[in-house]
Each structure stands twice: as structure tokens, then as C-alpha cells.
Simulated assay, not measured.
Amino acid sequence: MCEVLLNALGPRPDRQVDGVFIAGQLALAITSGALPIGTKLSQQSIANHYGLSRMPVREALRCAQAKGLISYVPNHTPVVVASAANDDSDLAKALRLLEKCLPRLDRPNDELAPVVAEFLDAYQAGNGGDQ
């Protein structure tokens, strides 16, 4: 259980992280399919992995629960309940498109506007032009 979870979260970052970062990593791991439905999420293992207390991990789990990615009941081990196959939300689509643009975001600010415009065009085209 813990090995699958920690492999999906990837290596520990060099910088200090918080609950928002962990929530993003969990969401990415779940929507990418790295954490399949039924995977149990150990608060202590996640906290140890990031070198944090369990408080920011609980915050991250609440965020993942709010997104419908996990089942989180107090005093029970959280479990993944969503997958990449059934995550067709607009946010997930936008995140996948943004991932494609990220390698180009290290440019100076004057070059960032066209990248963002390209992202927005691609996002609107992927949603049939509604926005």
C-alpha cells in the first residue's frame, strides 16, 4: 500500500511543502491513474514522505475529498474513489492542457502572454468554444 502511494507522489521536493502542494500531488496522481481506485492513503506515510506533521496532510485529504477523488471519513483510512477514466471535469482538462504549456513558462514575462493565450485558445477549443 505505502510503496504504491509514495511512488505515485514522486520524490520529496527540495523545498518545504504545504497541504495545498500535497493536495495537488494527490490529485495529479489520482487523475493520471498512478493511484488506482481502492488505494488506501496513509496519513502518516504521506507526512513522513514530505517531512511534515499530519495536519497539512489532513488538509490535503479534505481538498481531495472535496474534489470527489477520495472517500475520507474521520477515524478511517482514506481511499481513492475516482480515476483518470471517470475524471472528465473541466478542471482536469484544463490541467492536462496546462501541463503541455509548462515547459515554456520559464520565459521572461513579455513572452508569457502568448503562451497563456495559446492555452486559453486550446482550452476553449477543447470545450466546444463555451466559456
Results as ranks from 00 to 15, higher is better:
residue 53 S to G: 15
residue 26 L to G: 04
residue 90 D to V: 10
residue 75 N to D: 08
residue 7 N to C: 12
residue 121 D to F: 13
residue 109 N to C: 07
residue 96 R to W: 01
residue 43 Q to E: 13
residue 108 P to V: 12
residue 68 G to V: 02
residue 51 G to I: 11
residue 120 L to I: 15
residue 41 L to V: 11
residue 8 A to Y: 11
residue 59 E to W: 07
residue 26 L to S: 01
residue 13 P to D: 00
residue 6 L to T: 15
residue 53 S to V: 14
residue 62 R to G: 06
residue 91 L to V: 13
residue 42 S to H: 04
residue 97 L to W: 11
residue 8 A to C: 07
residue 14 D to A: 12
residue 40 K to H: 15
residue 17 V to R: 06
residue 77 T to A: 09
residue 34 A to Y: 07
residue 74 P to V: 15
residue 13 P to V: 12
residue 5 L to M: 07
residue 96 R to Y: 03
residue 6 L to S: 05
residue 83 S to E: 00
residue 5 L to F: 05
residue 4 V to L: 11
residue 57 V to K: 11
residue 77 T to Y: 08
residue 102 L to G: 08
residue 113 A to W: 13
residue 100 K to T: 14
residue 21 F to A: 01
residue 67 K to P: 04
residue 8 A to G: 02
residue 50 Y to C: 01
residue 5 L to V: 15
residue 16 Q to N: 09
residue 58 R to M: 04
residue 118 E to S: 13
residue 29 A to M: 03
residue 75 N to C: 06
residue 79 V to E: 08
residue 96 R to D: 01
residue 105 L to T: 15
residue 51 G to S: 05
residue 82 A to I: 01
residue 70 I to Y: 02
residue 86 N to C: 06
residue 71 S to E: 12
residue 33 G to Y: 10
residue 122 A to C: 11
residue 87 D to Q: 00
